[in-house]
Each structure stands twice: as structure tokens, then as C-alpha cells.
């Protein structure tokens, strides 16, 4: 198999930073740092359970902004689809993560290490559908996407 653009060291370092951040949240207030849940629960705010979510998201944007500024090479983000594709995909991601109760961070980063069967099955499912979607778009109907 041919490997392209493989960057194992930054990937591992970035992963350690992400896992450490999620563990910090757990240590601070016992919550699972699933980004879809943190964002979605801002939309139906419960008194006393909103400010930390907003602050965490502000930090996520700020941490990204800082790194993009310091290391412009990290700011590369090549969109894979146009407006309608982005809006359709965004709706699916929003709807799907709320029905499924989590995303890559809540189910993958936190749920699997906690030994959650639901998170394990959810992660296998969204990975499988991610693989299948890219296969269909790139190799069955798309050609060059």
C-alpha cells in the first residue's frame, strides 16, 4: 500500500495534546469533552452548565488562531466541497452527532478508553460510513473530486 503525506510524529503529538485537554476537563468538572455535546448543550442552556462550555469553545478557537499565526503551515485547510456540500454535510454532522450522542472526541477519544460499548460501536459506525462515503464520492461517482 502506498502512503501519502503521512505525518506520524505531529499526529501523535497533536493527539497527546487533545487527550490531555480532554483529561483536564474531566479532572476539572468531571465532564466528557465531546465537542458535539459541548456545542449542542449550549443551544439548550441549563443554568450553571453553560459558561464553561462557552469558555472551552472560545479556547478552541483561540488555541487554533495562535498556532495558525505562529506556524502558518498548520493553517492549511483545503475544502473538499462547495457551498451545498458544506451545508449538507454540516446538517448531517449536527443531526448525526446528536442522535448518536457524540462525535470523534466524545465517543472516540473519551468513550473508548472509558470502556464504553456504545462509544466503541458508534466509532466503528461513523468510521465505516466515512470510509464508504469517500469511496463512493472518489472512486464510484466522482473520479477526481
Amino acid at each position: 500500500m502506498e502512503l501519502h503525506n503521512f505525518t506520524p510524529v505531529p499526529a501523535l503529538v497533536g493527539g497527546l495534546m487533545i487527550g490531555t485537554a480532554a483529561a483536564l476537563v474531566y479532572a476539572m468538572n468531571g465532564r466528557i469533552a465531546g465537542i458535539s455535546g459541548i456545542a449542542a448543550r449550549l443551544l439548550r442552556s441549563v443554568p450553571g452548565d453553560t459558561a464553561w462550555r462557552a469558555m472551552f469553545l472560545v479556547g478552541m478557537v483561540g488555541g487554533g488562531a495562535l498556532l495558525f499565526h505562529l506556524r502558518p503551515a498548520l493553517a492549511v485547510h483545503e475544502m473538499q466541497t462547495g457551498w451545498w456540500g458544506l451545508v449538507g454535510a454540516g446538517l448531517l454532522v449536527g443531526l448525526g452527532t446528536r442522535l448518536g450522542g457524540g462525535c470523534t472526541s466524545g465517543h472516540g477519544v473519551c468513550g473508548i478508553p472509558r470502556g464504553s460499548t456504545r462509544s466503541f460501536v458508534a466509532t466503528l459506525t461513523f468510521m465505516a460510513f466515512g470510509f464508504a462515503t469517500v469511496f463512493v464520492l472518489r472512486h464510484l461517482i466522482g473520479g477526481e473530486v
Binding site: 487533545i18 465537542i35 458535539s36 456545542a39 478552541m60 475544502m79 473538499q80 466541497t81 456540500g85 458544506l86 449538507g88 454535510a89 454540516g90 446538517l91 448531517l92 454532522v93 443531526l95 448525526g96 452527532t97 446528536r98 442522535l99 448518536g100 450522542g101 462525535c103 470523534t104 472526541s105 465517543h107 460501536v121 458508534a122 466509532t123 459506525t125 461513523f126 468510521m127 465505516a128 460510513f129 466515512g130 470510509f131 464508504a132 462515503t133 469517500v134 464520492l137
Partner: peptide
């Protein structure tokens, strides 16, 4: 169902919530 829909959107755009 939710995880399947999420996977389709993730594959289409290459973006998850984080």
C-alpha cells in the same frame, strides 16, 4: 443511525465538530 449520518457528513466535508 446517528453515527451513520455523522460518518456520511464527515466523509463528504472532511470536517467533524472539533
Amino acid at each position: 443511525l446517528g453515527s451513520a449520518l455523522f460518518g456520511i457528513g464527515w466523509g463528504r466535508a472532511g470536517l467533524c465538530p472539533g
